[in-house]
Amino acid sequence: MNPRPLSPHLGVYKFMYTMTLSILHRLTGVAATVGFLLFTWWLMALASGSAAYAAAMRGLSTPLVKLLLVGFTFSFVYHFCNGIRHLVWDTGRALERAQARRGAVVVVVAAVALTALVVWMGCTALARGAP
């Protein structure tokens, strides 16, 4: 083990919901990476021909995978919204405690609403031109 001193870890701080948003940013970022790999696989299926694409779309339509896709959608949308919050912070704005907490509420509400919107749009797009 490295003998150099360590800073106090998470346990010494009082819990604040803003902490949850911070760790969620990381988790959703990693989940979005998996989503990117899935997107690549989907593009490769589309480039491989109609049979491969039909098989890929069948694989994506099973209930479990559909649930997973909703999860990826939320991860992506949340990371997008909270990422904009981070970009605002990078300009030196909205760093006061009250503003950070208000921003957290805005991000969570926006992420849930936009996830619902994208899922609804996705269902519509799936129904359109169904074979």
């Binding site: 589309l46 694409y53 997008f80 990422g83 996705g122 797009a125 799936l126 031109g129």
Partner: peptide, 25 residues
């Protein structure tokens, strides 16, 4: 991150305006 804001917004909106089940589409 800044580049991804318009790129992802455009892609998601454009993609979901098309028939996902149609290979030709």
């Amino acid at each position: 991150a800044i580049a991804l804001v318009p790129l992802t917004l455009w892609f998601v909106i454009a993609l979901l305006g098309h028939p996902l089940q149609s290979y030709d589409g």
